[in-house]
């Protein structure tokens, strides 16, 4: 199987294969038509329509008129939007780095053979399979300042109780904790897939040459694993930027606006205040941010590849 978001299926076709390819396209094109229609309707149409709406003042029930780039101009002077960008980047940085560190460590553990490995691995990935709303609810109950089990645990270690999601200073780190719990398993699985594909020969050669465990990790495992780690990094970055369900269920952007990320801001503009035109402009800017960060990481990946 290909590496999902990573390796694009299909390789470079050679010049000699070109006529055959064109022939193929005619014959196999029909297989793609139904999916193509769906993609057109639910993915491309929304895109085109979003661009169109972003140039309009468009309120539900309030009609609409063309305003050109006004929505974008307003967006970049909107204090609330700008701080939501900063918050999103803060959240993303933490929600990428921590799962990466824990995920790689976990993959190194799960790559070894031990009794009950299958069961342990399944329990480990349960958080990412569970319904986000359901687990967000349980976390909310655990964060209760007076009755929550987390504060009880803290007091057992002699640490003063925390306000968790009810304090502007701790709300983002707290939400990051939930995100780490939720998505570290995905990083682990991708890296584990990489570890499973490592060849055995270099290790044997290294052993004969007298390399110790650290040396063979540093000079064989790490370079071979790096492409997989970068893939996990890209996917995690995209997902952290897009995080919505748990943040919305747990805090709805609060207290005040102190956990209002771009995605929450977007939701409120669109479906709480019904500013559809303004929200569409947010979508465009948000998408460009995601794509440029993903492109930056892809570029890093290619450089890593060239270096290897």
């Amino acid at each position: 199987m290909p590496g999902g978001a990573t390796a694009l299926p299909g390789g470079a076709a050679t010049a000699a294969a070109a006529p055959r390819r064109r022939n193929y396209a005619r014959r196999y094109g029909w297989f793609i038509v139904p999916a193509g229609i769906v993609v057109l309707a639910v993915i491309l149409f929304p895109w085109a329509f979003t661009l169109f709406m972003s140039a309009h003042e468009w309120k539900i029930g309030g009609g609409h008129h063309f305003v050109g780039l006004d929505n974008y101009r307003k967006l970049f002077t909107d204090e609330r939007f700008l701080s939501s960008i900063a918050r999103t980047l803060y959240f993303t940085a933490l929600a990428v780095i921590l799962p990466m560190v824990f995920g790689v460590a976990a993959a190194l553990v799960f790559a070894r053979n031990f009794p009950l490995r299958g069961l342990a691995r399944t329990i480990f990935i349960l958080p990412m399979m569970a319904t986000p709303v359901a687990v967000a609810l349980v976390w909310t109950m655990m964060f209760h300042p007076q009755l929550g089990v987390l504060n009880w645990i803290l007091t057992q270690f002699g640490i003063p109780p925390s306000m968790w999601i009810y304090d502007a200073a701790t709300v983002i780190p707290t939400l990051v904790m939930v995100e780490v719990w939720h998505w570290t398993p995905l990083v682990m699985l991708i890296v584990l897939g990489g570890l499973a594909s490592l060849p055995i020969d270099p290790y044997e050669a290294a052993k004969i040459d007298g390399a110790n465990a650290w040396q063979s990790f540093r000079h064989i495992t790490w370079p071979l694993l790096l492409p997989f780690i970068v893939v996990a990094l890209i996917i995690r970055t995209i997902d952290a930027l897009k995080a919505f369900d748990t943040i919305y269920v747990i805090t709805q952007g609060g207290p005040g606006t102190s956990s209002e990320t771009i995605n929450i801001f977007l939701y409120l503009q669109g479906f709480a205040y019904y500013n559809m035109g303004y929200a569409s402009a947010v979508v465009v800017v948000f998408f460009l941010l995601i794509v440029s960060l993903a492109a930056l990481l892809l570029w890093t990946r290619n450089r890593v590849k060239d270096a290897a």
């Binding site: 299909g10 929304p46 669109g270 569409s280 794509v291 993903a294």
Partner: peptide, 23 residues
Amino acid sequence: MRATRAAMLILIARITPGLSYLI
């Protein structure tokens, strides 16, 4: 078909936040 571009479209769907389709 080794249709890399069609596959690319699927990738864009993966990158786009769900909310953006909704409006």
